[in-house]
Amino acid sequence: MEVRTIKVFTTVDNINLHTQVVDMSMTYGQQFGPTYLDGADVTKIKPHNSHEGKTFYVLPNDDTLRVEAFEYYHTTDPSFLGRYMSALNHTKKWKYPQVNGLTSIKWADNNCYLATALLTLQQIELKFNPPALQDAYYRARAGEAANFCALILAYCNKTVGELGDVRETMSYLFQHANLDSCKRVLNVVCKTCGQQQTTLKGVEAVMYMGTLSYEQFKKGVQIPCTCGKQATKYLVQQESPFVMMSAPPAQYELKHGTFTCASEYTGNYQCGHYKHITSKETLYCIDGALLTKSSEYKGPITDVFYKENSYTTTIK
């Protein structure tokens, strides 16, 4: 009895394709271990004539594949690729409408935090270190965002349907971005203890939790000093293409032309909904596939993004 075979390709990165001759009487799992086709788990399936010449994702289970996976995804987590594939199996079914010149995501599976993050990423200057993220990001900007969303979920250790947080998501993504040249110098002034300067680099240099107003941050924000008295913390120097200011959701007025974009969060910790506000020729609110415009805006804002380049204080 002759062994019926077909020729397929296996890959971990969709760049390096490895030619395989597979036995049609055995499952993919018996031949390769966990195997995925377009995100779908085909591990328990036997090869079919229609699979001839198709590319299958496999887990990096030998040295060659491990090197290829690390170079593309910059992670050695053995569960990463499987999590990416199972997320992709959902995100490829989502709709990605162009809204006001940006790629958004039609609401499904509690994905409003991903839509808000995706919209924000198209408006701030950011370059990702893992080629996987950078490639998928370019495709997302062009309207094909399924891979990018699935990668975000995998890097953030999230599953489809789980509630997510924009600030946490951005923080994970910033860790995989090139923020080497970003720098922030802060000064804390206390009447009792004097003053202390701190220099922050990388992710810490672009994120701040405690106030939404970048102007206020430049002037000074009140913080408790270690001595128990009130101290003032203010920005001395900022070198970065953008800054992200966050605070627990509270009524906040966004003035046209003073910011790049913002995240609105309605609801409580267990259950809520994100919308995205962007400042173009007027203010726009993007909620999944829905767009509304207004000249002014007041609502429960939790993150505001500002364009920056270089700032030095005039406070002496």
Rank of each mutant, 00 (worst) to 15 (best):
L212Q: 01
P241K: 08
V21C: 14
L153R: 03
K201L: 09
F174V: 01
G101M: 00
L173H: 08
E296P: 11
Q195A: 13
T314A: 14
D77S: 09
C193K: 14
A136T: 05
G288D: 06
C156G: 05
I315C: 15
T91Q: 04
E168F: 11
G220D: 03
N187K: 15
F259C: 05
C285W: 00
H276G: 00
A132D: 01
T64K: 12
V243Y: 01
P34Y: 08
N187E: 09
F259W: 03
Q197W: 05
T75R: 09
T10D: 06
T292L: 08
D165P: 01
M24C: 14
T260Y: 03
V160P: 07
M207E: 01
V67A: 13
V3M: 11
D77P: 02
G53E: 12
I45V: 12
S213Y: 06
T91G: 04
T232C: 06
D135H: 12
N16I: 04
E2K: 09
V203I: 15
Y138D: 13
S50D: 13
I277P: 01
K255I: 12
P47F: 05
A108F: 05
C285Q: 10
C182Q: 09
V304D: 06
T198H: 11
L88K: 01
G101S: 06
T103C: 08
K106M: 15
Q222T: 10
G228H: 01
H48Q: 13
Q230G: 06
V58E: 00
G164H: 03
Q216P: 08
P130H: 02
E308D: 05
Q216I: 05
L88T: 07
K191T: 14
M26N: 14
I124R: 06
T103H: 06
T312D: 06
V12H: 05
Y137P: 01
V236A: 09
A140S: 06
H176C: 05
C149L: 08
Y113L: 08
Q31V: 10
L81D: 01
Y297Q: 07
D135E: 13
Q237D: 09
D77A: 10
L163A: 11
K201A: 05
G33T: 07
T75P: 04
K7M: 12
L88H: 03
P131W: 04
T76N: 10
I152H: 00
V8T: 07
Q222K: 12
H256F: 11
K233E: 11
R184W: 00
G288T: 11
N157M: 05
F9E: 12
E204V: 12
